[in-house]
Write a protein that binds this DNA or RNA. Structure first.
Lengths: 232, 232
DNA sequence: GTCTATATGACGATAGAC
DNA sequence: GTCTATCGTCATATAGAC
């Protein structure tokens, strides 16, 4: 009785809502206690249920981490995607890249626990499943497509290897994020000791890989006002 | 009876040896299981004693992490110090910095667990004591002194702020290490997907902060042979 | 001083009643 | 689906033998 498709749909929907709530609460705990500080018991406690009940939705703690990985990767992908790279206003490579860098670094600084889970892998024995990793792959491809576009438009030099460009770009960003989060976790994007290095570092990068147009190859050291962090 | 200074010294020495052995075994476990995978019980098991006996030497697991932090910081400091920065042969800034970078990155790649403990802080609630952190401070000061020296010798431009130079330098190195360890942990310094970016990145850095002498300001993109990783 | 023996409470996880 | 009961393991702590 009561096993028609409508009922199944409602049950499935309810189940998905519960799963989403579990991930919400888990993310909250992770943000407070760190990635490894997450505990199944604490999730149950905050949801007002008993720990074994969680195993109906997640077969193990690693499965919960997997869902958190998927959530984080999807969120950072959406965040980066939501930011249109607008080249119509004749911006320099430097300006475009600084904007992109701050979008990504900004999200990471504001979500240190997700960043640690996604990029530092601190949980022994845990590796994300292919499904959970998929948005991360999409982010890599988006970045690559943007650099390809910048090269097509003549802002990145034509003889630059896209693999190298992307590799060096991710090294730069992960360096800033890594230093900022481990040495001065509380600081904002605008005032961070290491995030404030972005303008200089992006300038170095743009000078190296940028096409030799007059605007993008100024040889002066960045002065104080050039180091200002863009707010939008 | 038998409580003279000689006896005390022997006991103290024995105690220090035991403490050193505990740290050895703990470091071994950390290298196998990751920083958070370390357990006091496993240390005791491998030493052939019972867990409570360890508390004679370390009052808590955090204290053991503190000793591990001190050990790692001291080792990386010694490793970097052992490498004389030799400027007598008229090397370019690029060459000097690449050598220094590879020394540091090389140690980090070969000691991923120590690197995680020292630079990523994955243990919830653990922060190193001032004593344990002291060698890390010494390393920072050593790096700064070397850049000061390079500036005095005219290899780094005179108008460069040492704080900025050092900040950008640590961002570069931590970016390479972070990417290499989290995305391709097994690879060597010479063959790593990200460690092989060092020559290019160091060239970018040297071009930015180097004094404008002919040798250090070549404007060509690094070719394949320039990307080779030095073996010594 | 150093050890063994033992206890506590939290954790991840499972079995089975309802 | 949720519960109670339970298991094994963990970090931690204390008591007491030698």
């Amino acid at each position: 009785m009561n096993s028609g498709p409508g009922t199944l749909d409602r049950r499935q929907r309810r189940r998905q809502e519960t799963i989403a709530e579990v991930v919400d609460v888990a993310a909250e705990i992770m943000a407070e206690q760190g990635v490894v500080g997450l505990s199944v018991g604490e999730v149950a406690r905050r949801m007002g249920i008993r720990p074994p009940s969680l195993y109906v939705y997640f077969p193990s703690k690693h499965a919960l981490y997997d869902a958190l990985f998927a959530r984080g990767a999807q969120e950072v992908l959406d965040h980066v995607r939501s930011d249109d790279v607008d080249l119509t206003e004749g911006q320099t490579l430097d300006e475009v890249l600084l904007h992109v860098a701050e979008t990504f670094v900004g999200w990471s600084i504001e979500h240190p626990a997700f960043t640690a889970l996604l990029f530092w892998r601190p949980v022994p024995g845990f590796a994300p499943s292919a499904e959970a990793y998929a948005p991360a792959v999409a982010l890599i491809e988006l970045t690559r497509a943007r650099f390809a576009d910048l090269r097509d438009r003549g802002l990145v030099r034509a003889d630059a290897e896209l693999d190298d460009v992307q590799r060096d770009w991710t090294v730069l960003l992960s360096g800033v994020i890594s230093q900022q989060l481990s040495n001065a976790p509380g600081e904002s994007l605008a005032e961070g000791r290491f995030t404030s290095a972005l303008p200089t570092l992006v300038a170095m990068f743009a000078r190296h890989y940028g096409a030799a147009t007059p605007m993008s190859t100024r040889l002066s050291l960045p002065s104080k006002e050039n180091r200002r962090v863009r707010t939008r």
